[in-house]
């Protein structure tokens, strides 16, 4: 009897030894909560799924551990010989099914919301190239080419002899960011001019492939001003790791003045169709 307790204590501490760092890491290295309604919903969904998985894990691994400890031959020399139990089998078919439904419903809700691009207030076209992004604002005929910033570019090559650590936002800094207004539903129309790329900014809860010859649509509504970073996330060649995305969200008024400013500095009016490839 005493030994049983000892074992239980052993196991609990072992479990704690594994869980504690896990939870610590899960806290430090987790999905960003993000700054859009969708990113919030995804975060919630992900955490829900994570905790459900932890719950199932406790049950399943608990049962295994129990069996390993108490049904080892030294303690339990006479094996039972049951090999069927219909009720039990139905139970462990139905319960997982119910758990899955419980996850599927909110997931479906978030999905439908995330993919509803109607009623947006601003449209930006995003085009992937090997290896940079082009952002076009059809309303203002603004056209931005966004490449890896020189600061990273100097360090990146093999044997460059420079350290990435001292560079701010190594690989996540660009020449010109995408600037968006806060609080508006912005529709992004994403495509590519060569191979498949993917436009991924975790803080915005957006990842959408840029397929050559096809236009995908997705939307963002940024709730907080700030700078949000991501990168191309579909293997696209030599420069795949060097295709960052930076989004700067500004309050509406500042955004409009940025628009004015940009247009003053780049006066030639461009329609998307006449936009030159870089």
């Amino acid at each position: 009897m005493k030994k049983k307790w000892l074992h239980a204590a052993w196991c609990t501490s072992l479990l704690a030894a594994i869980t504690m760092p896990t939870l610590w890491a899960a806290n430090l290295y987790n999905l960003p909560h993000g700054v859009t309604p969708v990113s919030h919903a995804i975060y919630g969904l992900s955490m829900m799924a994570f905790w459900i998985m932890c719950g199932i894990a406790v049950v399943v691994f608990g049962a295994i551990t129990w069996s390993i400890i108490f049904h080892r031959r030294s303690r339990h020399p006479k094996p039972a010989d049951f090999h069927e139990n219909t009720v039990l089998e139905i139970v462990w078919t139905v319960i997982p099914f119910l758990i899955l439904i419980a996850m599927a419903i909110p997931a479906a809700r978030v999905l439908i919301r995330a993919e509803n691009v109607h009623h947006s207030e601003l449209t930006v076209e995003v085009t992937g190239y090997q290896w940079l992004w082009r952002y076009t604002y059809p309303r203002w005929k603004i056209n931005i080419y966004s490449r890896l910033a020189d600061s990273s570019l100097r360090i990146a090559p093999l044997h460059s002899g420079r350290s990435p650590y001292s560079t701010p936002h190594y690989l996540h800094a660009v020449t010109h960011p995408l600037v968006l207004p806060v609080g508006e539903k912005v529709r992004l129309l994403i495509t590519s001019k060569d191979v498949i790329h993917s436009w991924w900014v975790p803080d915005l809860g957006v990842q959408m492939d840029a397929n050559p010859g096809l236009v995908n649509s997705i939307w963002v509504k940024i709730l907080k001003p700030g700078t949000y970073r991501g990168q191309c996330n579909q293997i696209c060649g030599w420069g795949h790791a060097y295709m960052p995305i930076v989004v700067v969200a500004k309050p509406k008024a500042q955004f409009l003045s940025w628009v004015k400013h940009w247009r003053k500095r780049h006066p030639q009016a461009l329609s998307p169709a006449t936009t030159p490839d870089p």
Partner: peptide, 9 residues
């Protein structure tokens, strides 16, 4: 759903 593909390209 590929409305934009058609309209844009």
């Amino acid at each position: 759903y590929m409305f934009y593909t058609h309209a844009l390209l």
